[in-house]
């Protein structure tokens, strides 16, 4: 188990059976400092469940979750039903379970680009604003690892790109590990260090390029998805001067 060395958060043969149905089957995942690990997979693949298990919110049937001692976790859940019943402004949302200083709040909101909304009522926020607010909330915990479950779900296409840029910037700035669930294949491929393709069990994993060339990946998402991503990453590579070395590697293969 050399693999687990230096990991902040790992699952070891994580298995979950509910009502006779195997939801997770011996899943092994490691998240290290400064690394973006993305879990992709079809609906019902157990992505969110895996995240909940890794956070300790859902007990496993067998296997275990290994956390570095006193790990500080920032969590952004997949669903955040707006509760217009509870009168809350954004500042208050950020201090529900913490007591951050006003400066810390300002900093976190500035970093996620919603400083102007500090006094806004939470129920008035758009999907994208709320997502940023939750990210700011997670950052206030000074996380060593950020766990993001579908961070772009409620965001439009332009917002999606910005959200991924923000996540990437946060990783650079804070040096934290990021465990992310997504089904947006384009962005995942552009920003992740390690991709885990989940369908109950781990179908395939590795760097983004390796995963999309894996026959298992094509089986799960269809060959057109694989071609589309290849085209995207290629295009993407020419748009930006600095990029993941994996992508250059792919260029040579073409």
């Amino acid at each position: 188990m050399l693999k687990a060395q230096g990991a902040l958060l790992s699952s070891r043969d994580a298995t979950l059976v509910i009502g006779g149905r195997t939801i997770l089957d011996q899943v092994n995942i490691d998240v290290r400092s400064g690394e973006i690990v993305t879990v992709i997979g079809p609906n019902g693949a157990g992505k969110s469940t895996l995240v909940r298990c890794m956070l300790g919110l859902q007990p496993l049937t067998s296997g275990k979750i290994v956390r570095r001692a006193k790990l500080r976790v920032g969590y952004v859940p997949q669903r955040f039903p707006l509760t217009p019943n509870v009168p809350l402004d954004l500042r208050r949302l950020l201090s529900l379970t913490l007591k951050p200083s006003e400066t810390e709040i300002d900093q976190a909101l500035a970093e996620t680009g919603i400083g102007h909304l500090k006094g806004a009522s939470v129920s008035s926020l758009s999907g994208g604003e709320l997502q940023r607010a939750l990210l700011a909330r997670a950052l206030l915990r000074k996380p060593e690892i950020l766990v993001l479950d579908e961070p772009v779900q409620a965001v439009d296409f332009l917002g999606e790109t910005r959200m991924y840029e923000l996540i990437s910037a946060i990783r650079k700035h804070h040096g934290c590990g990021i465990l992310m669930v997504s089904h947006d294949l384009h962005m995942v491929m552009a920003e992740s260090d390690h991709v885990v393709c989940l369908n109950g069990h781990v179908c395939c994993e590795g760097g983004p390029i390796k995963v999309q060339q894996d026959p298992e990946f094509a089986k799960l998402f269809g060959p057109s998805a694989a071609r589309m991503i290849a085209a995207y990453t290629h295009h993407h590579d020419h748009d930006h001067e600095s990029h993941d070395h994996h992508l250059h590697h792919q260029d040579h293969k073409h």
Binding site: R52, L55, G56, L57, V73, Y75, P77, F80, P81, T83, V86, L88, L93, L96, T97, L98, R141
Partner: peptide, 9 residues
């Protein structure tokens, strides 16, 4: 506001 988030925190 959010039970699971509270639990995770």
């Amino acid at each position: 506001v959010h039970e699971e988030l509270a639990r995770a925190e």
